[in-house]
Design a protein around this nucleic acid. Structure first.
Lengths: 194, 194
DNA sequence: CTCCATAATCTAGCATTGCTAGCTCCAGTA
DNA sequence: TACTGGAGCTAGCAATGCTAGATTATGGAG
């Protein structure tokens, strides 16, 4: 049964290849360019192979999103751990969040802006997403009175997400990202009444 | 030439009908359900008629987005005008913004989350969008020290947009919208150092 | 080493999509 | 009343996601 073991490994590798290739095409030419034909050609397999790994095109997008959640959680945790002092942690985490969104716009879109089959906000929420949420909350708790941290974390997340998506859509003034981030940190750092 | 006048009127009316129907289908069954065939059938014309009004499907989405910008700007201006005192204006505007996004999710998607041919952030930005931005800024200026109002307006907008989109994607705890809005208003109302 | 059953992979094609070429037919003019 | 221009439709193309059925490779039994 050692042959089976090897096949499983090759299959997992190809699974990874599909996701990586899809992500690459999406980051290069947008998600519309990720057609099953182009993707299958890029991985040098025929289209039906894709369907032996994923239930359909949207499942592939979901797969990329999941990888993204893992990366984002890692980046936030790393920023949190590397921050010298608690009050610097929030700035580091926020900057890391916006950097991730800016450097991987298509991945970020898959995670947050595309019709998805993933479920959230309940127990079946992907673990990496919960980890990313926890990183933001931990950073916030370190800097503020920690009154109702869940709500404040949701709010900080929403602000970061709004900045990321509006900026990606060129809805905000270019070149003012630093200033906006500073303003956000100023708000979040301040004690909130109520 | 009175016949021409009538034709122009009918044509404008049909233009409006197309946008309204497309929006209705999108709000009912999502944008994926807005196919040129279903849309043309709903307006009781053949498909090519759509292309005599719009350059393509995305132009129709853009048209709905533009209508949405107009409505949003109107709602924000109304909220601003109806607020009894300046410090209540911000709460009214923010609530109106989230209400609009919650009541017309597909329209809101067309405005902010879909690949669009519209341009923003420069002079050619749609006028209604600039009007909506101005309404938020005016509300903010009334409540705070108005230091760097452009940046603070972008930030407030981003927070509202983030709350709207994450909530629409069921990424936030249900039933806590009021609390999040209150927390946001608390942050924005507080004076920010720097 | 050979044969064969199983699994893996591909070829070919379906239904649906956005979009368009070219015909038809009707309204308005002389 | 004949004619012309344009408004609208029928029919069809290329591209998409997806799948059925044929085909080839794999690996164990004799």
């Amino acid at each position: 049964m050692t042959a089976q073991r090897r096949k499983d490994r090759e299959r997992a590798e190809r699974h990874r290849l599909i996701l990586e290739t899809a992500r690459g095409i999406a980051e290069a030419d947008g998600w519309d360019a990720v057609t099953t034909r182009r993707l299958s050609e890029a991985i040098e397999y025929s289209q039906p192979v894709l369907y032996s790994h994923f239930t359909g095109r949207t499942a592939i997008v979901d797969g990329v999103a999941l990888v993204g959640f893992g990366e984002l959680a890692g980046a936030l945790r790393a920023a949190l751990a590397a921050a010298p002092r608690p009050d610097a942690a929030l700035a580091a985490v926020a900057a890391a969040y916006l950097r991730f969104a800016g450097e991987h716009p298509a991945t970020y879109r898959a995670m947050f802006s595309m019709d998805t089959g993933l479920t959230f906000a309940d127990e079946s929420s992907p673990e990496p997403l919960r980890a990313a949420f926890a990183a933001i909350r931990d950073a916030l708790v370190g800097v503020t009175g920690a009154h109702d941290p869940e709500t404040r974390t949701e709010l900080a997340w929403a602000a970061l997400h709004g900045l990321a998506t509006l900026d990606a859509g060129h809805r905000l003034r270019p070149g003012h990202g630093e200033r906006r981030l500073a303003a956000l940190l100023g708000l979040l750092g301040a004690d909130v009444p109520g």
